[in-house]
Nucleic acid binder design. Structure first.
Lengths: 204, 204
DNA sequence: ATAGAGGACGAACGATCGTTCTGTATAACT
DNA sequence: AGTTATACAGAACGATCGTTCGTCCTCTAT
């Protein structure tokens, strides 16, 4: 068995987390099992859990990594667009795109985690809630900018806009995947665009 | 230990299922445990599972009961309203109402089950998908009726309307509960009304 | 050259998982 | 009243859960 340098060790922890993200996107953060994950990574259970301390610490690391992956896929590209409505439009496109490209093997990770912990208190609940609040805040700030620029009706509450976008994306992603509706993502995109006053189809 | 008559037996099975629905709405259909449920019902594990055969059969019975409960709370009351837009409005009110009244202890059961099985094949996936498809079909038929009556724009796709209502309700319910936003249900209701062309607040 | 730190292993822990089997007490039927 | 059917308890099953332990191996630093 080849040994690993310190750099490889860090890689190994990161790759363990990434594998766990993919696994959890299918079976849920609560559905992860040390044994199963260790098996997929061809590691021993003790070697795996040793990296994190205990299972909950691992779950929190996995959640953080998933949030990072989501941010990379959806938010970061949108930063290239102008603040306000153009950026919201870019977010919608990237959001639908990351669902279409299956950035998460089993559907949006944060949605899965939200459902798992919405009624179960604990550190993981708090982590998920904090991540969602942060994301809603980002969307709301962008909506506020758009409204100030006159790109959204003056009587449209930015908080409502953010909440509506989030609801549509998470609800639509789940339902579409569940019932196997190929057009679901298009419907979701159209609905999200409607929510910010854009025509159903992009001009591109 | 007192014995039970046949009628009591049926009651016992039904009450076991109802307790399981409440439990599963918190921990998920996959999170149910024979031992834990038996404990809550003050029964032995073998006595409990004996009613159903195996765990999967129990889960399917629990899911069916949850769908029934949802139908009772959301659809059946709306049947008193005129078909078309009035009935859709009643559905929205009842839908939000059943979330507010916590008909399910841990948030909408079907949403939880949708997320659990959207990426996991099997009989339970098929059951959940069938239930959601049926519900979307009901909403779509009502939207189609509303459009024919001129209460929805002619270019509004009834399938889109149904999908949008469902996405908003399930996504909004989860997010609101997760982040503990008391206004979330109001936001969701307003968004759902917007989706069917109604003003944010009901006239009542 | 050698001591130390740290990562990973295999084995084992008690607990709990879903399931099966057996015994028994009651209800329903003849 | 005697027989059959049924519903449940209790014990036990192999498997797997998360975790802990002691040991080995490799790398780094002195």
């Amino acid at each position: 068995m080849p040994r690993r340098s310190a750099a490889h060790v860090a890689d190994s922890r990161a790759s363990a987390v990434e594998a766990a993200v993919d696994l959890a996107s299918v079976v849920g953060l609560e559905g992860i099992t040390i044994g199963r994950l260790a098996g997929e990574l061809a590691m021993s259970k003790s070697g795996l859990i040793g990296r994190f301390g205990d299972k909950e610490a691992m779950q929190r690391a996995v959640l953080a990594a998933a949030v990072e992956r989501f941010t990379d896929a959806v938010w970061r590209p949108a930063l290239r667009s102008e603040p306000g409505l153009p950026r919201l439009e870019a977010v919608v496109d990237a959001w639908i795109g990351h669902l279409r490209d299956r950035v998460f093997r089993g559907g949006c990770f944060v949605t899965t985690a939200s459902v798992e912990y919405d009624a179960r208190p604990g550190p993981l609940h708090d982590d998920v809630a904090a991540a969602v609040r942060r994301w809603l805040g980002v969307l709301e700030a962008e909506a506020r900018h758009a409204r100030a620029a006159g790109d959204l009706p003056a009587d449209r509450d930015p908080t409502d806009v953010a909440f509506e976008l989030h609801s549509l994306a998470s609800g639509g992603g789940v339902a579409g995947r569940l019932i196997g509706d190929a057009a679901a993502l298009d419907r979701t995109r159209a609905a999200m665009r409607r929510a910010i006053g854009l025509p159903p189809a992009s001009r591109r």
